[in-house]
Design a protein around this nucleic acid. Structure first.
Ligand SMILES: [Mn+2]
Ligand SMILES: [Mn+2]
Ligand SMILES: [Zn+2]
Ligand SMILES: [Zn+2]
Lengths: 156, 156
DNA sequence: TGGTGTTTTAGAACTATTATAATTATAGAC
DNA sequence: GTCTATAATTATAATAGTTCTAAAACACCA
């Protein structure tokens, strides 16, 4: 489940961190809520910029440290940007990504649509690939690359 | 079509470069053939190391310059590594990748198998995504992430 | 073969990320 | 609530991948 836009109060995040054996700190709370509220998947520096404006102060090193801690504990995933820097995603379930060639941004395909595609993948072919290659597929990453032709229709 | 293992003599590469408006140089020939002969998709530095051993000398800057030229002219593609550096691929058609979690290596799903999966994607769902988001999908990148459980069966 | 624009190159510069080590804060015991 | 042990934060330095610079070498065509 995507946690974006679900209001994340301090208590909720505290128990979420607790459940993942992560200490709760003001900085981690700030990074996690900033990450989870983003529609596109930000770089470490973009998060740092955003937090520098609002927060009383957080260091770039802490942004990196926190992101690494979140990834390690399964509360976020690290995505490879096509370019130089990494992008982070508070959604850790299997979901599709859209890369907008025009802007370079990376965002999510809405849950319902993405799930429909994942549910309709040819499982027999995936099984055949696993059997033939002797490879156990633990997850897939699918990226749709292209350009927007207009604004997206609102999906509920 | 993957060009791996098709013997690439100087004349063939010369006309290939010519067709793509790329000047033929000793260094570009070396980089391109090294790239096209790799089963896994190497980093710039891996290519440089490999060429340093065999060639009479090529600079790292030239490896980067050449890879950029190959990508720009459509003779290679740049792939995002999960980690720090970029990987390059002499196959420019749509094909699936395998990421081996154990080693971090990135390699191809054999053409026939990969094509079978691509041919069996639910086109109607893809169309629905395009229509709903107002997004024109120009290509997809699919990565199967997991671990090998044994050696692959030989595929012909 | 000569002239001209292109490529190569060593090295410097740049940028994203990670390491260091001193300071500060958290969580749990009392 | 206070104390303590352990973990997180921070400024800063170090590292690593990549790009830039400008001078020398080369490819291509007339
Ligand atoms: Mn780096
Ligand atoms: Mn870099
Ligand atoms: Zn996502
Ligand atoms: Zn490939």
């Amino acid at each position: 489940m995507h946690q974006n836009n679900h209001n994340l109060d301090e208590a909720a995040v505290h128990s979420l961190f607790c459940a993942h054996s992560l200490r709760f700190t003001r900085q981690r709370f700030a990074v996690y809520t900033a990450l989870a509220s983003e529609k596109v998947h930000p770089t470490a520096d973009q998060l740092f910029q955003k937090l520098s404006r609002s927060e009383s102060g957080i260091s770039l090193a802490t942004v990196y440290n926190t992101l690494e801690a979140l990834v390690k504990s399964g509360l976020a995933q690290k995505l490879a940007d096509g370019g130089t820097s990494a992008r982070y995603d508070a959604a850790v379930d299997d979901h599709l990504h859209i890369r907008d060639c025009a802007t370079g941004s990376l965002s999510d395909v809405p849950e319902a649509l993405g799930q429909k595609l994942l549910d309709n993948l040819p499982q027999d072919v995936l099984k055949e690939i696993e059997d033939t290659l002797g490879f156990r597929i633990s997850r897939m990453q699918i990226e749709l690359i292209g350009e927007y032709t207009r604004e997206a229709v609102e999906v509920n």
